[in-house]
Design a protein around this nucleic acid. Structure first.
Length: 140
RNA sequence: GCAGUCGGACGGUUUGUCGCUGGCAUCCUUUCGGGGAUGAAAGAGGAAAGUCCGGGCAGCAUAGGGCAUCCCACUUGUUAACGGCAAGCAAUCCGCGAGGGUUGAGUAGCGGAGAAGAAAAUAACCGCCUCUCUUUUCUUUUGGAGAGUGAGGUAAGGGUGAGAAGGUGAGGCAAGAGCUCACCAGCCGUGUGGUGACAUACGGGCUGUUCGCCUUGGGAGCUGUAAGAUCAUGUAAACCGGCGUUAUGAGGGUAGCCCGCCCCAUGUCGGAGGGUAGAUCGCUAGAGCCAUACGGUGACGGGUGGCGUAGAUAAAUGACAGACACCUUCGCUCUUCGGAGCAAGGCACAGAACCCGGCUUAUAGGCCGGCUGCUUUC
């Protein structure tokens, strides 16, 4: 498993371009209103939903930090960047699991805490979440 | 040197790994709409913030007049504009001082001003003075002194208050009073100086404070880039325009009201709207920035030369690791007592969202200049 991850990461550059960030209004509405399942690992909660597969980008994500938790935009931006970075560096966990599946997936990460966390901590929680989603996907 | 005050400018630098955004160049590919790869550059602020003023720009509305409503209010200037800014004026408060804070159209009329105080604007409670009467007492007598009652005069003194009938002093008086005089503060008139707010000289005895209504002068259409435009999709009885036609009465529009003005059922011809999701434009060359000398006390102005400098949209401008610089220390070591080295910790406020000019608020840390006070040396 470890070797495979290393291999993937070496040849697939860990990018995260605009097309991988979910921005379709209708998809987001559907995700939160009906189809989304959620699991959480404090301070992160993820809402996810299978979606028709796009060959180039099977997974799209969005990150949300409520204004209620951080009044100042500087801190909200910092958290969003940390979460995006954590996903970018670990996304091959999920991509490997979805490689043989007929569907893609959309994820929404929601921040839950009023405090800032270290990037190391967020990365650990992100790996936890992605592994759990990957397991559930394989069970489908 | 220390303390202070005013003004100005700054607010990290850098290496590595992995990324993000929009352009550019080269190449590849294409269903000619586009898509992809590589490369070298670029990519948050002094407040980007609060959204408090003022404009540009855009759309909609709009014959005209009056009233109401709202905003502004010492003067002169500055500007695209402002409630900003600059230089001034007057009053007042703080500071030894350099300086700083607050207030500022008018007062003819109407109304309010708790508690306190006799009284808050036709002032008499105590006090002071005069007179009548009664009474006590002293004296040889005329008369003197005290107490009380009543009539009157008095704004000098007391106490209350933010404010007590301009202030202080002298004359004057029974006692007093701008009653008279001198000086001072205000007001009015005249002259002089100043663009002006005002200042000043002379004359006049005209003189309570504060708030609101009110009065005067100036100004204000509404909505904000989610404005708005184009493309694609696509249709009805809705919308707009032309032509024809009915009625003179209600209704609608014209920012809230009034006057005034405009419109009108239905038919026919022509045009193309609305909703939903999306793409592109708007979207950055602008009252632009930097340098320089000139004019101006200054805000600022025009001149010359140079520069090309973010454009996201579930919202890029980063994440991680290190080095340097800077700051702090009940920490250690050294010291020529000025400091130096090591260690540990810290390194602010804060993220463009159409664009500008201001204001307000937040802000670690240091830098530069003018001036003031104290102190040391010469």
């Amino acid at each position: 498993m470890y070797n495979l991850r290393f291999f993937t990461r070496y040849f697939m550059t860990a990018t995260l371009c605009k097309a991988e960030r979910q921005n379709k209004h209708s998809v987001i509405g559907k995700l939160f209103e009906s189809g989304g399942k959620s699991i959480s690992a404090f301070p992160l909660r993820v809402v996810y939903m299978p979606l028709a597969k796009d060959d180039e980008f099977p997974v799209s994500i969005l990150v949300s930090v409520p204004k209620r938790l951080f009044k100042r935009a500087v801190k909200r931006n910092r958290v969003k960047r940390q979460v995006r970075e954590a996903y970018r560096l670990n996304k091959d966990i999920l991509l490997q699991a979805l490689a043989d599946q007929p569907h893609g997936m959309v994820l929404a990460f929601i921040w839950l805490d009023k405090e800032l966390h270290s990037s190391e901590d967020i990365g650990r929680k992100m790996r936890n979440l992605l592994h759990r989603i990957a397991e559930k996907t394989l069970q489908l």
